[in-house]
């Protein structure tokens, strides 16, 4: 019997829950030890524009879903990742990661999704507050998602870095536009396939591959993006911060610790992408009830 020819996968981008090719038709070749392993979409600023429109469109529903529901959906994402473990590992290996390390990275990535899933319905219990104002008012502060967040994904950690920076954005109800790692983009598209089958609504996460430097500036300038998480590529810190000023985008900078470090698991990176909202409400005060306690 003749040898079976493998079917090769076309890596596409992820916008609004669909997998289009870049509108520009461009690609770049991904190599490992000078062997071509994939032709990856070289996204354009128009792809970015479409991704932001998709993210904005998804925001109302995603942020309006219950925290419990978002928690379940992120947990579902971990379940689906568990089923694709081998695929993630072989993709990491294909891109040059040592197999043993790849296995550790994938395990840790799944656990990390679960860690952040657990925060969805707890973040306001820990960071919300009731404020004892001195007038007759009930006053409370709650954390709310910001809106559309641009994530410039970690360059050197194709899966672990991606989920560790993406989940804290999503869990509170933000929608994300992700610029994937240039050198390690394969897992991001496979993660998109996970997202597409995990009850995460279309548009909540949008993933673009390509040259970050080309698109980043348009992300930083975009008037309908509320925040940017610049996980590395910190050489662009100044220009991103300057462009972000136009609509006072929040710029959150990565702290350059290893994505495998335990301290990456913390809630403060979630609140970095949240606003605090305080509500005042009158409390009728009656006197002389004499109601005995």
């Amino acid at each position: 019997m003749a040898e079976r020819i493998n079917v090769l996968k076309t890596y596409k981008i992820f916008i609004g829950g669909k997998f289009p090719r870049t509108e520009s038709g461009r690609f770049y070749q991904l190599n490992n030890r000078s062997k071509a392993i994939a032709n990856v979409c070289l996204s354009s600023r128009k792809d970015l524009r479409n991704a932001v429109v998709a993210a904005r469109g998804a925001f109302e529903k995603w942020s309006g879903s219950t925290a419990h529901n978002r928690s379940q959906i992120l947990y579902r994402m971990a379940e689906m990742m568990e089923g694709r473990k081998d695929q993630f590992i072989s993709e990491l290996v294909l891109q040059g990661v040592d197999r043993k390390e790849a296995k550790v990275e994938v395990d840790l990535s799944i656990d990390r999704v679960i860690y952040f899933a657990g925060w969805a319905d707890k973040i306001n219990q820990v960071f919300g507050s009731v404020n004892p104002v001195a007038t007759s008012h009930f006053n409370f502060s709650l954390m709310e998602p910001m809106g559309v967040v641009g994530l410039v994904a970690p360059e050197k950690s194709g899966l672990l870095g991606l989920v560790s920076s993406l989940c804290p954005i999503l869990v509170s109800g933000n929608c994300a536009v992700v610029l994937a790692s240039e050198k390690l983009p394969l897992c991001s598209i496979t993660l998109a396939e996970v997202l597409a089958t995990s009850d995460v609504p279309g548009g909540v996460v949008n993933i673009l591959t390509g040259k970050k430097e080309e698109i980043m500036v348009h992300l930083a300038k975009h008037m309908d993006v509320n925040a940017i998480y610049l996980t590395d590529n910190l050489e662009h810190k100044k220009s991103v911060q300057e462009e972000a000023i136009q609509n006072l985008k929040r710029v959150v900078l990565g702290n350059q610790i290893s994505w495998g470090d335990r301290t990456v698991e913390n809630p403060y990176i979630i609140t970095d992408f949240m606003e605090t909202k305080t509500t005042w409400h009158p409390v009728e005060v009656i006197s002389g009830t004499g109601s005995g306690y």
Partner: peptide, 10 residues
Amino acid sequence: FFYYAGWTDK
């Protein structure tokens, strides 16, 4: 169970 599962490491 789902809610408290999330508390263990927090």
